[in-house]
Amino acid sequence: MEPATTHGELGKLRWHCRRGLLELDLVLEQFNNRHLEVLDAGQLALFKELLAFGDNDLLDLVMGRTAPADERYGALLKMLRTP
């Protein structure tokens, strides 16, 4: 199968997971280690969209304190929430 993205793009995504809140660093690091290299193109595009959220808004989504306005994020958020 063709990789969904390049080594450099994965590096960029990993770097975009460096956040101002430790809670997000931890959640995103675990997610990346488990899933980043096997996400398909559609999931990667959604992940990029999620990473564009501000830190507190993203943490609220990840911790389930707020519901996503866009239901397309549901599956990815579920993966992010899995301990």
Partner: peptide, 12 residues
């Protein structure tokens, strides 16, 4: 900045 400014640790 290493990261986008509003993702600096001051946010915490």
């Amino acid at each position: 900045s290493k990261v986008f400014p509003t993702r600096s640790y001051t946010v915490a």
